[in-house]
């Protein structure tokens, strides 16, 4: 897939909240281009491909109230907690 260039890497990395440093983005673009080329074989798939009946169903269970949440233990695994709240850096930064 020839259009997987450095600009695409930056765009996708931004969507995925990953850093694409300028010194890495060229090699990353080449690497991903090779993978995307490889998965490009899917374009050769005849459509519509064969289909069949899927007999699987989602099992249902009784609608019974149960209490399994353990907020203190769940919060214990978080990096920054204030009482019963997860604390994060400022979402909206000071304009000044």
């Amino acid at each position: 897939m020839s259009d997987f260039d450095v600009a695409t890497v930056h765009h996708i990395a931004r969507l995925a909240r990953l850093r694409a440093d300028s010194d890495q983005s060229e090699s990353l673009a080449a690497e991903l281009a090779r993978i995307v080329d490889f998965v490009g074989v899917l374009e050769q798939l005849p459509t519509p491909a064969a289909t069949f009946e899927d007999e699987r169903t989602t099992p249902l269970r009784e609608d019974v109230v149960s209490t399994t949440s353990r907020p203190d233990e769940l919060l214990a695994g978080a990096p920054d907690v204030d009482g019963s709240h997860l604390r994060v850096p400022a979402v909206i930064r000071d304009a000044t």
Binding site: G77, A78, P79, D80, L86, V88, P89, A90, V91
Partner: peptide, 17 residues
């Protein structure tokens, strides 16, 4: 936010974190 480690560069807000 919820699991494991956090790296906070400082000054870059939530998105930077």
């Amino acid at each position: 936010v919820r699991y494991g480690a956090r790296i906070e560069p400082g000054g870059e807000g939530l998105d930077g974190m």
